[in-house]
Computed example of a mutant assay.
Amino acid sequence: MFLPANVQTNIDRIQNRINSSANTLSSKTEDNSEKIKNLIEAVRLALIILSAVMLLLTFLGFVFSLFGMQFLVYILVITGWILVTGTFILCGIFLLLHNVTGDTCVAMNQWVQNPTAHTALDDILPCVDNATAQETLTRSKEVTSQLVNLMNTVINNVSNNNFPPNFGPFYYNQSGPPVPNICNPFNSDLTDRTCAPGEVDLNNATQAWRGYVCQTSGNGICVTRGRLTPAMYGQMTAGVNVSYGLYRYGPFLVNLEDCSFVRQTFSDIHATYCPGLRRYSRWIYIGLVMVATAVMLSLVFWVIYGRERRHRVYTKQRTPGGFAGDKPS
């Protein structure tokens, strides 16, 4: 109500952008997290099923070979070769994943250790220089301080004054205890400032002001005790939200801008997750190679055993005293 029209428009626009960005970031993060979890769960289930099928195939082939069920053995041999081929392909995929993971971890570590060197990640993560980032932080502090000063000016000169009824738009029958000022977190030189007694912090100003809001009539005049109309309270709440957002998240956004946050994240990933990820991916493809090789050797041994069994039966039939020799000529 008492803020300039351009300031109100800018506050509403910034608030909408902040809310939209926060909602988009939260939604995308949740979706990506869910997709990654589903992918990992699907891979885990596929590996378990593949291992179980391989073990079952090996056991059945062993049993069928012992009992001389050559037809079933041949069926298992054909099925086994298909599974072995698929397992080797899957092993190659995990080997590729292992190499990509290793190269990515090395690239992240090089980018963190050499922030001024041109690396492959520079083309993916365009970072601004430190001077530009600090200029952005300074401007965010200035906007925060100016918004707080503007709202305190409205509180001191309008809300906490008792104007006569003929004093135009500044009179709306305000009454009751004075509205506390907002604590400006910065001095005039933008250094950190300590709150004075009686001031309210940016993070709880809207809750503190809620008790000073009056009920108004159709023409905007307070009909109950209070020094803030609902319209004023809404505009000042929007201003507080923008000021608090810039004050609270401005340094974080600057860290995003100059990639300090990304460097710290990459450093944590390289130190915490890269060793385990590379180790476990190596275990997976080595395990797949061992399983595929074992099944492949089992297939070969089944065929050899089947041929040897038929050869023994044939030899026994042709040997004197065997099954064929007992028959009359």
Rank of each mutant, 00 (worst) to 15 (best):
V289E: 11
D326M: 13
M236D: 01
P115H: 13
N161A: 08
V303T: 12
V128Y: 04
V300P: 00
S188M: 11
L76G: 06
S188P: 03
Y244V: 01
Q113R: 09
I14K: 06
L39V: 10
R139G: 09
G198R: 05
G325F: 11
R193E: 03
R312K: 10
V291G: 07
G306E: 08
Q264K: 13
N38E: 14
T229A: 05
F266I: 07
L228A: 06
Y273K: 09
N19C: 03
Q70K: 11
C274Y: 02
C259N: 14
V223L: 08
S243P: 05
C214F: 08
N149H: 11
R193Q: 03
W111S: 10
G321A: 11
S329Y: 10
F252M: 11
G80H: 05
G218P: 00
G276N: 10
L190D: 03
W283P: 04
E41Q: 13
D129N: 14
N255P: 01
S217D: 15
R44Q: 11
D189H: 04
V291A: 15
S27M: 07
V303R: 07
A131H: 13
Q207T: 15
P275R: 05
T29P: 00
N204R: 02
L72K: 03
R248S: 14
S159D: 11
D129I: 07
V254D: 07
C259Q: 08
M108D: 04
R282V: 05
Q174A: 15
L125E: 12
T9K: 10
C195I: 01
A22P: 03
F323P: 06
S175A: 14
